[in-house]
């Protein structure tokens, strides 16, 4: 039953991505991206990753969608028709898929308790996290206690990205080079 629910949700995600890839209206693409993220969050709950599901719902479906809509506000909402038929990218994608599918044949079956991922360190964290850190949520214990420095590094990444965004968008006010002042492709005149 559990497997059935997970597989059904995964199929819905694949469908959302197919519709998303075919749509040329960027607003629809972004909303479908939000739908995809919420489906992903639901799958993660079914896969017992509740912390990840909460983060994905808040960050993937929330902040990402808001950021994309904000950027879309400054751009056109319709994607141009492609000049070439996408045969070469399709061939590259199918080739990659074939190689990866060949690779999955050796992987352990879904939810196999004897799979290598379940027989190494994970059981030690589950057994000792409570005694060593006093935190019942093992994900929190590993994230904030055992691997606290990784989380610090992650903060540095987010800080760098934020600084980059500010540096990029601050130049807008005093940008007077000749390319910016020319008429653009959409026919609008720049102020």
């Amino acid at each position: 039953m559990e497997t059935l629910i997970i597989n059904l949700l995964l199929t819905m995600m694949a469908l959302a991505v197919v519709i998303l890839a075919r749509s040329r209206n960027l607003f629809a693409v972004i909303v479908l991206g939000g739908v995809y993220s919420f489906l992903m969050a639901t799958v993660l709950v079914a896969l017992d990753a509740v912390d990840v599901a909460m983060t994905e719902a808040a960050v993937g479906a929330g902040i990402s969608t808001v950021l994309l809509l904000g950027a879309l506000h400054l751009c056109k909402t319709e994607e141009a028709k492609p000049i070439h038929r996408p045969w070469l990218p399709l061939a590259v994608a199918c080739g990659t898929a074939a190689v990866l599918a060949y690779g999955t044949l050796d992987l352990p079956a879904f939810s196999d308790p004897q799979a290598p991922i379940h027989v190494h360190v994970a059981s030690r964290y589950l057994a000792e996290a409570m005694a060593q850190t006093g935190v019942p949520n093992v994900v929190t214990a590993v994230l904030a206690s055992y691997r606290g420095y990784d989380t610090l590094g992650e903060t540095v990444v987010v800080f760098t990205a934020g600084a980059g965004v500010i540096a990029l968008l601050r130049r807008r006010k005093n940008n007077n080079d000749r390319r910016a002042t020319q008429t653009d492709f959409s026919g609008e005149r720049r102020p």
Partner: peptide, 13 residues
């Protein structure tokens, strides 16, 4: 997905 065990629960002791 590989970390899931059917019949298991979220890793909150």
């Amino acid at each position: 997905a590989p970390g899931k065990l059917i019949g298991g629960t979220a890793p909150i002791l």
